[in-house]
């Protein structure tokens, strides 16, 4: 049904709600339909579903039919009275802040150095190597880590024992994991952010550098007074988005907290974060009430963190704000 109406450009720029405008819009709505439907199903129904946190859920009555909890906050009470509440909240904050800061600093340093490598093939090889871990799954990284740290055959323990040291039981002692987890996250993500910053540096107008060079600025001065200030918006946005994602599942990036320590109970005090606790309560204990209460707690904190980050971004760089 190709009609001539399609060919008439709208003169006022503000389409009126006439039959003609509706007919013009139909093909667009057809194209949008699948996307909008999936957004509604996948994102909005679960939003309503958070009321499970206040319910005594049973499969027979479903989300809406199940009776309300009495008292209403019972699922939360159970969580907040447990030791887990404090430790998972602390761990979530601790690891995300450490990782955001460490990855940003390392990536910036690497990007600035990488920018000095002028030989195209060499720089592409370096980029290719440090980018590789980005594409590996946390399960694969779990295998890699296991080959390094395994008690009886791991290469680290072989090296230690060859030099006459004591075998280290990596998978039984929580305190090691305060270092292992951030190192693993830096290892996986630093390449991605370095290459990102290299692209941002490449976008800086070369006139600045030429002018500075004419004025006799040293390489370090050029980095300090041109590169870093001009990268600032990118740095701020990327690190604040990270803070925003902190409580929001981190784009599925909590996976490592679950897989790397082999989900070992002895390590929970150092490795358990909110997401892993929710995942485990759901998968192993099948405790819908508590899992959804913890999930809601996470979502609410996440909501405010996104609002705050967005507010700060808006002040620093209005163009980069999400809304």
């Amino acid at each position: 049904m190709k009609t001539i109406t399609n060919a008439i450009p709208n003169r006022t720029g503000k389409p009126r709600r006439t039959l003609r405008s509706m007919r013009r819009q139909t093909p667009f709505y057809l194209m949008m339909a699948p996307g909008l439907i999936f957004v509604a199903i996948l994102f909005y129904i679960p939003m309503v579903g958070v009321i499970i946190a206040f319910k005594d859920y049973n499969a027979r009555d479903g989300i809406l039919g199940s009776p309300w909890m009495d008292p209403l906050f019972k699922n939360f009470e159970f969580f907040f009275k447990s030791d887990a509440a404090r430790s998972v909240t602390f761990n979530t904050l601790f690891y995300n802040v450490i990782q955001a800061v460490a990855v940003t600093l390392c990536a910036l340093a690497l990007a600035i150095l990488l920018n000095e490598v002028k030989h195209k093939f060499v720089s592409a090889t370096y980029k290719g190597s440090i980018l590789l871990p980005t594409f590996l799954s946390w399960i694969v990284i779990q295998f890699i880590l296991f080959s390094l740290l395994s008690v009886d055959r791991g290469i680290v323990n072989s090296m230690i024992s060859e030099n006459g040291g004591e075998t280290i039981y990596w998978y039984s002692e929580p305190s090691y994991w305060r270092y292992i987890l951030p190192i693993a996250y830096i290892w996986k993500n630093v390449g991605y952010y370095s290459v990102l910053y290299v692209a941002a540096i490449a976008g800086i107008n070369t006139d600045y550098y030429e002018a500075a060079q004419l004025d006799g600025a040293s390489k370090w001065q050029r980095i300090k007074h041109i590169t870093l200030p001009l990268l600032q918006p990118t740095i701020i946005v990327l690190s604040l988005l990270w803070v925003g994602k902190l409580f929001n599942g981190g784009l599925g990036d909590w996976n490592g907290f679950y897989t790397l320590p082999n989900d070992a109970g002895a390590l929970y005090s150092a490795t358990d974060v909110i997401d892993t606790l929710v995942f485990r309560s759901l998968k192993k204990v099948n405790d819908y009430g508590m899992a959804s209460a913890i999930g809601l707690y996470q979502a609410v904190v996440g909501f405010f963190l996104v609002l705050i980050s967005n507010y700060i971004i808006k002040k620093k760089d209005p163009d980069s704000a999400l809304f």
Binding site: F43, P46, I63, A299
Partner: peptide, 14 residues
């Protein structure tokens, strides 16, 4: 949905 996500459990039940 960027602002507020329902989480794992409602998605599981869905």
């Amino acid at each position: 949905p960027v602002l507020f996500n329902g989480g794992l459990v409602p998605q599981y039940i869905l």
